[in-house]
Design a protein around this nucleic acid. Sequence first.
DNA 1: ACGCTGCCAAGATCTTTTAT
DNA 2: ATAAAAGATCTTGGCAGCGT
Length: 298
Amino acid sequence: MLVNLRSLDLNLLVTLDVLLAEHNVTRAALRLNFSQPSVSVHLAKLREILGDPLLLPGPRGMQPTARALALREPLREALESLERALAPERPFDPAGASDTWRVAASDYGESTIALPALRGLREAAPNTRLAVVELAPARVAKQAAQGEIDLAFHTTSDAPENLRRRALFTERYVLAGRADHPRLKRRPGAKQFCALEHVIVSPDGGGFHGVTDEVLAQAGLTRRVVLSVPHFLFVIAVLERSDLVAMLPWRLVREKAALRVVEPPIEVPGYEMCMLWHERSHRDSAHRWLREQIARAV
DNA sequence: ACGCTGCCAAGATCTTTTAT
DNA sequence: ATAAAAGATCTTGGCAGCGT
């Protein structure tokens, strides 16, 4: 018959553990910082609960019953396991860690966050692995909740409310075209800007209308958006091989020698990037280290 | 007010020492 | 070898502190 743990004071097991080691109530009491009678009462309760005398007074002190002998090792292991489980979390050791982290990122997040952070991660924690998975904004909250991803890189403004977040940087838009683009030798005016052929990134797919178009509309202007693509990096390839231009995040194009980057003639509001994670990971020392590492890298 | 826990004091039991 | 005395150890009963 199983002992109901609800009705069992686990402190009794601590006493039993010491009793099984000492075979002596007085010495057990000394070790436990209890009075001898208290331990005697504990033993009485244990006898009642387990239905076994456990320790019998005999010729050479208290002799353990067969049940007591059978109990000793498993009990010791169980208590040690509990002690380990309840021990204060030890600080994360990057050098010895072999975690695999799953991070959701768009190709923009890959370029501007994952890439800068990668070197530091490899150096500090060489036995860890990083899995970057496609960022699907609609699914981030669920993925985080189900533990499919540890971290997501996302714009702050439309990030799921129920996830923890930390701002990483603010981004602004610049106008980019190929390095020797004839119309970008000087910063174009609004009219020339609208006359150019534009590429737009539409992560949801298929859209031809973005923030830039809204700002233009307020000024009574429209531009010619001739290509819509879902990924940022493809835009760069397109710009390099055509006369198309695009309003792109500054961080994505700042080191692209093949591109010419100019300030746009109109003021397009930027956005803030943040990383998102689930409450469950919030206090985890490994996860905190990862977050700190990434925040420092960007 | 009640129940739980631990302590102290006293009683009970068993072991060891000492005397015969 | 046996019995009494002393010592060690466990159990029981009563009490106080504490939290519900």
